[in-house]
């Protein structure tokens, strides 16, 4: 195992070790904190495919996070009020089943990513950033002004949704579920990065003309990457809403999109475990510094500045050095 492999393994194992230690010490809040870090990591792992491998600086990934959140909120609220979602030629009931909610979250955010991608990927650079931001704001204001699902106040769910065979109300069991999903997605992302698609996507980021000259279309590569990326962030959104048993327009806000970028940059852009390291560091700072000062984000800002100025590879990059080519 090379150095990056060792660092990745320690980042990966830090969360379950923390969660198990907290379980042994009977500190359920710490388990919840670890779960929160794992979910935010998952959202950022999704973004990392577009941002890191594809070079697409999306300031609109909160759209998918929020769609995942509202997929959970809408389905669960109908289930808890026993009012069908749609009652016409056929009946669509709400549901409290996590697998179904995840599927809806993934599909709806993938569809949104497809539409947003089709429109925004025709631009690049700052225009791409602005268009993705604009989509984010559209969803944000729509969710605020749509009263059916709580509008500005958001939507509360009384009981966490269920997963067959697990008691999801038990913090450690819910953590295990989230961590299993994160592991699965990380495995998938690791494969994608080394697969033909990943090579072509990475090449399109480095030199689009080169990719065209070998007969590949950068636009299609980026669009597919954007859709997969959005779907993963959408899944994270459903989990995040389930963790809090609450969903609100905040999940659609551009600050949320910005935080995902911060996770990726802090941890190391384009590194498989970068977003995991970044999200864990962020949650850790949030937890420790918010006790010190209510202006804790100032310190996060300062750290981000240091990383951008002096450690361009982020946490993983500065520890592991330049990425070693796969063979």
């Amino acid at each position: 195992m090379n150095r990056e492999g060792l660092i990745n393994a320690s980042v990966y194992l830090a969360l379950p070790v923390l969660a198990l230690a907290a379980l042994a010490l009977d500190e359920p809040f710490t388990i919840t904190l670890a779960t929160r870090a794992a979910i935010l990591a998952l959202a950022a792992v999704g973004l990392n495919l577009a941002l890191g491998l594809g070079g697409l600086v999306s300031l609109g990934h909160a759209v998918f996070f929020g769609l995942g959140g509202y997929a959970m909120g809408i389905l669960a609220s109908h289930a808890q009020s026993y009012a069908p979602l749609y009652d016409g030629w056929f009946v669509v009931e709400g549901t409290k089943s996590m697998p179904v909610i995840w599927l809806v979250a993934v599909l709806s955010s993938a569809l949104a990513a497809l539409i947003i991608g089709l429109l925004s990927l025709r631009t690049s650079g700052v225009y791409f950033i602005m268009i993705t931001l604009a989509f984010g704001q559209m969803f944000y204001y729509f969710s605020i002004s749509w009263p059916a699902y709580g509008g500005e106040d958001g939507l509360s769910i009384y009981v966490r949704n269920s997963f067959p065979g697990l008691n999801t109300l038990d913090p450690i069991q819910f953590f295990a579920l989230v961590f299993a999903l994160l592991s699965l997605v990380l495995w998938g992302m690791g494969r994608i990065a080394r697969a033909p698609f990943g090579l072509a996507l990475s090449a399109a980021r480095q030199n689009a003309a080169r990719v065209e000259t070998v007969g590949l279309e950068p636009f299609r590569l980026r669009l597919v990457a954007f859709v997969i990326s959005g779907a993963v962030t959408g899944l994270a959104g459903a989990l995040f809403a389930d963790l809090n048993r609450f969903v609100s327009p905040t999940m659609f806000s551009w600050q949320m999109s910005g935080e995902f970028i911060v996770f990726v940059v802090l941890g190391g852009i384009g590194r498989l475990f970068g977003p995991v390291a970044g999200a864990c560091l962020f949650v850790l700072l949030e937890h420790t510094l918010s006790g010190v000062s209510e202006f804790w984000l100032v310190y996060v800002g300062a750290i981000l500045l240091l990383v951008v100025l002096f450690a361009r590879g982020g946490l993983i990059g500065s520890l592991a050095g330049r990425e070693v080519a796969d063979d």
């Binding site: 998938g188 494969r191 994608i192 080394r194 697969a195 033909p196 698609f197 990943g198 090579l199 072509a200 590949l216 590569l221 597919v224 796969d326 063979d327």
Partner: peptide, 9 residues
Amino acid sequence: VWRFLKPVM
């Protein structure tokens, strides 16, 4: 190019 799992190298 539309293969996502097998390492290309």
